[in-house]
Computed example of a mutant assay.
Amino acid sequence: MSTSKQFAAVTGAGSGIGRAAAIALAASGFTVALIGRTDAPLHETKAAIDDAGGHAHIAAADVADEGSVDAAFAQIVREFGRLDVLFNNAGRNAGAVPLDEYALDFWNDVVATNLTGVFLCARAAWRIMKNQTPQGGRIINNGSISAHSPRPNTIAYTATKHAVSGITKSLALDGRPYRIACSQIDIGNAATSLTERMTRGVLQADGSVVPEARIDVSHVANAVTHIASLPLEANVLNMTIMATTMPFVGRG
């Protein structure tokens, strides 16, 4: 496989930020592996890439399942021969739930997708990047504004996103001998179906319910593509991209 080509994988590529990032990466010249649990949305993303003249393959997987993840990345090796970028994007939202009402199953489901899934996909990509020639690659983790500051009653989501920051720093350190760079992009209110509720009002720290501004998801996709396109001697360790007027930088 020619090493002049660039190959990327995007988890959660069937919708929202993942779909937008996959389309943007393909438009910038990457051949993209589309990873997700459900075939139909992945085929929709692939069709959008194909229609624009890009190249994408589907590698269906549940990021919380070890065997499923390893099979998807084995498919990537067979079809691409190497992997240059992983956008570790897949995650699940978790609505506001008071701590005393938290069910253990709910906690475990959030942790499985938002934390274990990030670990499993990073590990699978790492194994490829460490052993390929030329050696190296880039892992971009999707964190969140919640990696820095919680919303009310979101202990599971907040804990997992804080933990993603630890994963990012560990990978950025441990990847140095193998030319593996790791970045984290923390996103505030990209306009997707998951954030539609924010236009109607969301709970704030002071107990009020206030609508929040959102940004077009293309700005996030372009930021991911910028990081992905950097040479491996340069890294954006952390990037926050957010709606300018959202309350993250103020007191609430």
Rank of each mutant, 00 (worst) to 15 (best):
S2Y: 10
T3D: 11
S4V: 14
S4C: 02
F7Y: 14
A8S: 03
V10P: 08
T11L: 07
G12L: 02
G14W: 05
S15D: 13
G16Q: 08
A21V: 05
A22P: 00
L25T: 07
A26R: 04
T31H: 11
T31D: 10
A33R: 07
R37F: 02
R37Y: 04
D39L: 13
T45L: 03
K46V: 12
K46M: 06
D50Q: 08
G54N: 10
A59W: 09
A60D: 05
A61R: 04
V63L: 00
D65R: 04
D65Q: 05
A71D: 06
A72W: 08
A72V: 09
E79F: 03
E79H: 09
R82G: 04
D84K: 09
F87K: 11
A90Q: 08
G91P: 00
R92Y: 01
A94S: 13
G95F: 01
A96H: 14
V97R: 02
Y102G: 02
D105L: 05
F106L: 12
W107M: 10
V110W: 03
V111S: 02
N114L: 01
T116P: 11
V118I: 11
L120K: 07
R123K: 15
A124E: 14
T133P: 00
G136C: 11
G137C: 10
I139Y: 14
I139W: 15
N142M: 05
G143D: 05
P150E: 07
R151F: 07
N153L: 08
I155A: 06
A156T: 09
T158F: 12
T160D: 01
V164W: 00
V164I: 09
I167S: 00
T168S: 14
K169E: 10
L171H: 11
L171K: 09
L173W: 08
G175N: 04
G175W: 13
P177S: 04
A181E: 15
I185K: 02
I185T: 08
D186I: 00
D186L: 00
D186K: 00
N189R: 07
T192G: 00
S193H: 13
L194I: 15
T195M: 05
R197H: 10
R197S: 10
M198I: 05
R200T: 15
V202Y: 01
L203F: 09
A205Y: 02
G207A: 12
E212I: 07
I215L: 15
V220D: 00
V220Y: 01
A223M: 14
I227W: 06
L230A: 04
L230W: 01
L232V: 04
A234P: 02
M239Q: 05
T240R: 02
I241Q: 01
A243N: 09
T245W: 15
T245F: 15
F248V: 04
F248A: 09
G250M: 13
G250D: 11
R251Q: 08
